[in-house]
Amino acid sequence: MADRIITEVDELKAVTHPLRVRMLGALRADGPATATELARRFDTDTGTTSYHLRKLARFKFVEEAEQRDGRERRWQASEPTTSWDSAALSVTAEGRAAVSVMRRHQLAALDRTISAYDAAQTDLPQEWVGAAGMSDLPATLTPRSLHALEERVIALIDEFVAADAGEPDARPVMLFYGGFPRIDPPGWDDVADES
């Protein structure tokens, strides 16, 4: 699923700007748009969105889309997904900071997704209410196994997307995956079991 894997700090920093990351997400989720359309969506001006689109284009996150007419410049995401190589980027403080910013953007996207779902839940068919959700699952894994698990999750997602292509009841779904080693707070062993 990851069509582009970022290994350079400058590339990742180009997309860490809050408006840029949201515009890129919108182009991926909703298809091509003009700077004017994006400005309306994100309550800013066309000059600002044009500037940020050019910055994203410089680093090949977006590209010009097929034009509907000669008067508008439409943009599209260059790839359906982007990920980054945390190990390669973590060798510098600047890289670690950029990765941290991107994780915060992912958390913000998760929060927006959950908030929108909560607001619309009463209007959704019950089968969607029953299918939606999230979990936190503790596991004891090696780094190798955690990496392999992520690859298998992505492959499984690709398999289900292909199987559901063209299904009349298929809808866009936001999927979030994360796996981090648990870092217990100092004094964790001293905390009494409250259960």
Rank of each mutant, 00 (worst) to 15 (best):
A65Q: 02
A65P: 00
E66V: 03
Q67W: 03
G70M: 02
G70Y: 00
R74S: 00
W75R: 01
Q76L: 14
Q76W: 05
A77H: 00
A77Y: 00
A77G: 09
A77K: 01
A77D: 01
A77V: 04
S78W: 00
S78I: 00
P80D: 05
P80W: 08
T81F: 08
T81I: 04
T82N: 01
T82A: 08
T82V: 12
S83V: 03
S83W: 02
S83N: 10
W84K: 04
W84Y: 15
W84A: 10
D85P: 02
D85H: 03
D85L: 04
D85K: 02
S86I: 10
S86M: 08
S86C: 09
A87D: 15
A87E: 14
A88L: 04
A88S: 13
A88M: 09
S90T: 07
V91D: 09
A93Y: 03
E94M: 05
G95C: 06
G95R: 01
A98E: 00
V99I: 08
V99N: 00
V99T: 09
V99H: 00
S100D: 10
S100A: 15
V101N: 05
V101A: 12
V101K: 02
V101F: 01
R103H: 15
Q106V: 12
Q106S: 10
L107C: 09
L107S: 04
L107R: 01
L107W: 06
A108W: 05
A108V: 11
L110E: 05
L110C: 12
D111G: 11
D111K: 13
R112V: 11
T113L: 11
T113E: 14
I114E: 07
A116F: 01
D118N: 12
A119I: 07
A119T: 06
A119M: 06
A119P: 04
A120M: 13
Q121M: 11
T122Q: 08
T122A: 14
T122S: 14
D123E: 15
D123F: 09
D123G: 12
D123N: 11
L124K: 08
L124G: 04
P125F: 07
Q126Y: 06
Q126V: 14
Q126K: 14
Q126T: 13
E127L: 02
W128C: 01
V129Q: 13
V129M: 07
V129T: 05
V129N: 08
G130C: 12
A131K: 13
A131P: 01
A131S: 13
S135C: 06
D136R: 12
L137E: 14
P138V: 10
P138D: 11
T140H: 06
T140V: 14
L141D: 11
L146E: 14
H147C: 10
H147K: 14
A148I: 06
A148D: 15
A148N: 11
E150Q: 15
R152E: 05
R152T: 07
V153C: 10
V153R: 02
V153M: 08
I154K: 07
A155Y: 09
L156K: 13
L156H: 13
I157V: 15
D158P: 01
E159Q: 15
F160Y: 14
F160D: 14
V161I: 13
A163V: 03
D164F: 08
D164Y: 07
G166R: 07
G166V: 11
P168E: 12
P168L: 11
P168C: 06
P168M: 07
